[in-house]
């Protein structure tokens, strides 16, 4: 059972990195919209796992995407941030009951899943574009990119999570 979960996580890691760098980094919709779809790794990651492993894994996830797209190490910084904040966001979205053994992402309402993903994306993109552009004179550009690319990521993220969610019993 444990092996099965770890195998799934590693597979997800590799597939999401490849999907990000080979497909979504080349999308360039309207010139600059490249959805950062690899965030779904944090959305799907099991809840009751060791936090230390989770944060280190997320750091390497970001670093892998960085190495491929020559953006050292903006993705890593943004991903580590949401990895650290994930329990806080989950408590905010799902209430205290997410800590119970029986809690599953699939059992929560669509609205909750949507808010959870949206919060992850907003924080991630804000850190990402702040570090990428890195000047306060361009703060409007940072906000504009965060919102527009964030919406694109959100739409695709919801599509993917619906497509690949395990069926409800």
């Amino acid at each position: 059972m444990i092996n099965n979960t770890s195998f799934l996580i590693v597979l997800r890691f590799i597939l999401l990195v490849l999907l990000q760098v080979l497909v979504f980094n080349k999308l360039n919709f309207f010139g600059y919209i490249n959805p950062l779809i690899y965030i779904l790794f944090l959305y799907w990651y099991p809840i009751k796992q060791n936090r230390t492993t989770f944060i280190i894994l997320c750091f390497f996830l970001g670093l892998c995407v960085d190495i491929f797209s020559d953006t050292l190490a903006i993705n890593a910084a943004a991903t580590v941030t949401i990895a650290y904040l994930r329990p806080t966001i989950m408590r905010f979205v799902f209430g205290v009951n997410y800590e119970f053994q029986s809690f599953k992402l699939n059992n929560s309402t669509k609205a909750q899943q949507f808010t959870f993903l949206a919060l992850l994306i907003i924080i991630h993109h804000l850190v990402y574009f702040t570090l990428e552009i890195f000047s306060f004179s361009n703060s409007l550009l940072i906000l504009q990119k965060t919102i527009i690319v964030g919406i694109a990521t959100l739409i695709l993220g919801m599509l993917f999570s619906t497509l690949f969610s395990s069926k409800k019993e």
Binding site: L72, A77, L131
Partner: peptide, 23 residues
């Protein structure tokens, strides 16, 4: 980890990229 990534980021703002961590 955040510090490491920030050091990488600010280095690449002003110098050449790191020798191995590029595409």
């Amino acid at each position: 980890l955040l510090l490491i990534s920030c050091i990488f980021t600010f280095q690449s703002h002003s110098y050449h990229q790191s020798k191995f961590l590029n595409s």
